[in-house]
Design a protein around this nucleic acid. Structure first.
Lengths: 238, 238
DNA sequence: ATCGAGTTGCTTCTTGGTTAGCATGGGTCG
DNA sequence: CGACCCATGCTAACCAAGAAGCAACTCGAT
């Protein structure tokens, strides 16, 4: 899917985001790939975006984020993730992909809605298998989802109640593999459980904070946690 | 399903992706299969795509990825995978793919939304004038509104925060003039201000409770309070 | 106004995907 | 057995991307 150059750049960006929390500028990428002009970077970036690996805002400095990593890269970088059954891992990203993105609200235009698959429920300690099946779909205002792939989850439990996320709410998740401090994310912990938590990174440590004093913040090494998506919307029915 | 050649090619591609993370070019495949022309490769690739084993972007260099492997190949290559995860993961994706389809928001989805007018903002102590103008519209999943008239309000302030209603949330209100104890309602107090509060009636007294200990419950005679609507839904964007 | 950062146009060279035409060996079907 | 389809092979053009460089332009933020 990717050329060597594209892969190199993607890897570089990923590392920088991991290390600094901030994506590199074109010039930095230019340096990293040992180019003399950043126009080349521009084209590579465009290619990556076209292929769905990154997402970006035009004309915004460093406004890009990694949405997914090719399997090869993930394997290369993510050594330590213990042994686990393939298909489980499979459960996550790769293929729900087609689902969201291209939802250009054609006719519906401004007033559009998008159907997103509800991938199950999520709480503190849900086996990821739970988020690999589509239970049903929900209609979501198109304005809530931007570019990229999205899906929905039903929230179970009260661990995020202080963030205004109640039991039974449906949260809209944008698939990404990165997050900024303070973001609420779906995090896969040790390839075993997915939780909705506030993300905070400190060097190599990642803290997953609940928004409920009754739950403790859990600390992990960065190789124990994989961000699977970021909270972008919430829908509740009374 | 596959001819020998097709299988060979698929295997080769798979190995290369495993090894380099980058799919081979037609020329490389040509070499690998010991052909003298890449047109043959083109046909094989087309066949593989047609049969759903790979996915690709036309006219893009190396833009192809393996979607699934035939059982035979999987068995053959799958030995050592216990400690590895990469490509095996691809294994059963194909099945989830169809999920995608429904994301075409066209007709079906369009029917699933309703445009509601946002009548302004509401908080503790907003002049009713504020809820008489439409500032804009929001798309709301049709499932959220039932019978009756509805409108939306943007919540201002944190008075209902313990009910999971945050500053900036958009609440969907069904117009009614009655409410049951415990409902969250838009109440017009003394014809002067509209607030979003939890409703509780006790004889002739009506209590409007905030969901935030910082605010006091206010008591009124029932002729001082008019229910204007009841909370039925909430939408939040991050 | 100015700086930093992203965007574009244009050029050049290389790599790589697409097509068309023609040929061969295997099967399948009357 | 001959007609025909299909998978393969090969040649040869052809053209579209990928990759790089330089420079000018523009947008956003200060």
């Amino acid at each position: 899917m990717l050329t060597k150059k594209q892969l190199d750049l993607l890897e570089f960006i990923h590392k920088r985001v991991q290390r600094d929390g901030v994506p590199p500028s074109f010039d930095e990428m230019k340096e990293a790939l040992d180019l003399k002009s950043k126009s080349g970077i521009h084209r590579l970036i465009t290619a990556l975006e076209e292929r769905g690996f990154i997402r970006r805002l035009a004309h915004r400095a460093r406004a890009l984020e990694i949405v997914k990593l090719p399997d090869a890269l993930e394997a290369k970088l993510g050594q330590s993730q213990s042994s686990f059954k393939p298909q489980v891992i499979d459960g996550d990203r790769p293929d729900q992909r087609p689902v969201a993105a291209q939802s250009l609200p054609t006719s519906g235009a401004a007033a559009g809605v998008i159907d997103l698959p509800v991938m199950g429920r999520i709480a503190a300690g849900v086996p990821i298998a739970a988020i690999s099946e589509v239970s049903h779909n929900v209609a979501v205002p198109a304005a809530m989802v931007g570019k990229g792939e999205h899906y929905a989850l039903e929230v179970k439990g009260d661990s995020m109640i202080d963030a205004g996320i109640n039991d039974g709410d449906v949260v809209i998740i944008r698939e990404t593999v990165t997050a900024d401090n303070g973001d609420i994310v779906v995090a896969l912990v040790e390839d075993a459980e997915a939780t909705l938590k506030r993300y905070r990174r400190n060097g190599n440590a990642i803290a997953l904070e609940a928004a409920n004093p009754a739950y403790e913040t859990r600390l992990f090494r960065d190789d124990q946690v994989k961000v699977q998506g970021r909270l972008v919307g919430l829908i509740r029915s009374y």
